[in-house]
Design a protein around this nucleic acid. Structure first.
Lengths: 338, 338
DNA sequence: TACTTTTGTGAAATCGATTTCTTAATAACG
DNA sequence: CGTTATTAAGAAATCGATTTCACAAAAGTA
């Protein structure tokens, strides 16, 4: 038996409307009345019923976030950024872990359709650009992390995959490597494609001919990276460096090399992407590309909330953030964690 | 302009009540009518408004989870267990990351009070047992991970800290160690206390006198573990093994040892707790205690949901799960990751 | 003083789905 | 065939907070 607004109204000898006004800081309330009401609220230990409030306002002050996996420091950091920004704007976040399953992504997307969340931030690859455009046109508030959606109402934040991939190649070539393997992620992700593009451009700049047999798919996970390396070893082709499109796959590379007794970086240099928390604890420490994860989360959350509220399709909608290459032991930097 | 139930009703030529019956699978609807309604729903692309539904049912089908940190594989795994169980029971989960700040825990707790979630799972130390008992008495649905709350309506799941801590000591003593450091976590957590208790009992069993100077507090995080080790080194006391109350602190131990040029496990053996994902990638691999994290999450979520629904204070409310010691390179096992 | 503007408050409508209460139409049964 | 169950479906009340509308009281202005 919960206390409702009428109970407070009765206790204070006013109407529910007046209680509501006090609750919402409406100015047209005598200070004496306000006091009476506040006293009644305190006496009864009244809490407003969020369900009724949501129905009336058609808002839940809740953001949904869909990520491929929360047990990855990459997404965990992004989530923290979103969460803190949302919290400061009085929003809550519902985190949806799609566990790398495209079906789950779509199921979670229906959260938005059922209007339990006011807006949604998508950081997964399986939800297509067309679907996002369609939903946005229908009036749903959506923001995207990791790719650029061509729609005036969809805030996007991503990093320049091509740019940092070229830097990675620069770095490796600078160390004398010419036979550089590229481990790609699954095909649905733009990240896979763009990092490959950067790899190709990097080679071209250094006039190194592209050898297709040096590209393998590792599905962005450790097992995939391991298997891809095994395939490469079995092919008996020579290479001296591996650029893995993320750190998870680099873990698989380490494992495969350990099994074959190949030393990193002496025999094979390795560079990953994401600056996963694990990367600096490996032996040797893993060279990787760091993205400003926390900031990315915070920025996209802020933009989405802004847009949901004032509907002013803000000056800036698309954010490309810079990533930096961190050179560690796996490609010539200090081998131990500092 | 969303489509509502009346629109569907009009289109199908029936009353909103009938549409609701179709929506909720009520048997008293002619199959012909049902078809008409379903057709109208499909034609209009109707989605029920969750806010109205929540208000009517006074339920949101949402669970809140408060954890100290999502960027820790320990909690991430627990969350996955909760999430999947909740999902299969048609519940959603709101994950609240308290970021190791007691104030944040309390703020999130107020989420529950505002009734936006139907139940809450607490995995943080700062919310006191008394508070939990008080809220449960008030009718809020709460479950707890990591400690045992003495209240008939609060499902709890935890592991026997004393038991596995004794096993850790057994293991270390078995390797010939007698001067074993204990790195404790912050005092608010029962885990700290109970793991210390197990450490003491373990020593006693082996007739090893307790030396208080071998106990240091590392606050459950890497920096704390590092600083604690530095204090120990500076005290110039001798010891040959460290039992860290979690893997995070063990990371700090590794770092401190690296700086001082101390070899693990030759000079100092190390054992942690949690089987954090990182632990098996360290060099040497870290011996640790594994808890069935995913299963713990799933079990507690199931119990909470059961209790919220049928109110039958189920036979079993308190779950003590077994943990197992995983011996790796830091205490004599294989040094490289397998 | 008479009239306009600003304050202050209550009654009632609203948000949209569900459910109770009715009533009507069939079906089942003696 | 008449009477009781069962099935089917609508009207209206309900969940609880907010807001519009209406009106009165107080304050300000000519």
């Amino acid at each position: 038996m919960d206390i409702k607004i009428v109970d407070v109204a009765n206790k204070a000898g006013v109407s529910p409307a007046t209680v509501s006004r006090v609750l919402n800081g409406n100015a047209y309330v005598k200070s004496k009345t306000r006091e009476k009401v506040n006293q009644a609220i305190a006496d009864l230990g009244y809490h407003r019923n969020a369900f009724a409030q949501n129905l009336r306002s058609q808002k839940s002050m809740t953001l949904g976030i869909i990520v491929p996996d929360i047990n990855s420091s990459y997404f965990a950091e992004i989530i923290k950024g979103i969460e803190n920004m949302a919290y400061s704007r009085k929003y809550r976040a519902i985190i949806c872990d799609a566990e790398n399953q495209p079906e789950k992504e779509l199921e979670y997307l229906s959260l938005l359709l059922s209007r339990t969340v006011d807006g949604m931030i998508i950081a997964t690859p399986a939800i297509s650009d067309e679907e996002i455009v369609r939903l946005s046109d229908k009036g749903y508030a959506i923001a995207v992390i990791g790719k650029n959606i061509d729609h005036p109402k969809v805030p996007c934040i991503f990093t320049d995959n091509v740019k940092f991939s070229r830097e990675v190649i620069d770095h490796l070539v600078g160390l004398g490597h010419r036979d550089i393997v590229f481990l790609s992620g699954y095909a649905e992700a733009v990240d896979s494609f763009e990092r490959l593009e950067g790899y190709l451009k990097g080679l071209k700049e250094h006039h190194i001919p592209f050898r297709p047999e040096l590209v393998e798919n590792g599905n962005f996970n450790e097992a995939g990276g391991y298997e891809a390396m095994m395939r490469l070893f079995d092919k008996k082709i020579s290479f001296t460096a591996v650029y893995a499109a993320n750190d998870e796959m680099a873990l698989g590379v380490y494992k495969a090399c350990a099994e074959r007794g190949i030393r990193i970086p002496e025999q094979i240099a390795v560079v990953g992407v994401d600056n996963n928390r694990i990367s600096k604890y490996l032996t040797p420490t893993l060279s990787t590309v760091n993205q400003p994860k926390y900031a990315m989360g915070a920025v996209i959350a802020e933009k989405l909330i802004d847009q949901m509220n004032d509907n002013e399709f803000s000056e800036k909608r698309v954010f490309s953030v810079d990533s930096e290459l961190i050179v560690r032991g796996s490609s010539g930097g200090p081998k131990a964690s500092s």
